[in-house]
């Protein structure tokens, strides 16, 4: 298991905490959790270089897809893989998220005990 730095944006503080906890059950994962897309971009500006960016889809202000679009405009983060995490479980929506350029979609509610493994699977695929 390689070390994995995760930048995670979610506006729900409880979910953010649970998901961070769940991800960090994997000792090789380090999570930087922020409350929305703008904060995620700010963290990148501040010099964070994550291996993967985990974005909630529905967030006030800049939502997940908008954040992804902005990321792709930055040469430094053009190729950083993005995974969406969303309560919108419908198949065609997931299809749409993937078509936006995400490497994968994790649906809420997620199984906390396997969340880290799931994320690694998506990155390896």
């Amino acid at each position: 298991m390689s070390r994995l730095s995760v930048l995670y944006a979610d506006d729900e503080p409880d979910i953010r905490e649970v998901a961070t906890f769940a991800l960090e059950l994997d000792p090789e994962i380090a999570v930087t959790a922020v409350e929305d897309g703008a904060a995620a971009l700010a963290a990148l500006d501040a010099g964070l270089v994550p291996d993967v960016i985990l974005l909630d889809v529905m967030m006030p202000g800049m939502d997940g897809p908008a954040t992804l679009t902005r990321l792709r405009e930055r040469p430094a983060h053009e190729r950083t893989p993005v995974v969406f995490i969303t309560a919108r479980a419908q198949a065609h929506e997931q299809e749409r998220f993937r078509s936006l350029g995400a490497v994968g979609v994790i649906t809420k509610p997620f199984d906390p005990m396997t969340l880290a493994g799931r994320l690694r699977e998506l990155l390896d695929a």
Binding site: E12, I15, V18, F21, A22, A89, K108, P109, P112, M113
Partner: peptide, 13 residues
């Protein structure tokens, strides 16, 4: 789903 995510997540942990 949003609150359930927190609940089920916490309980699962």
């Amino acid at each position: 789903r949003t609150p359930l995510t927190s609940i089920a997540g916490s309980l699962g942990l």
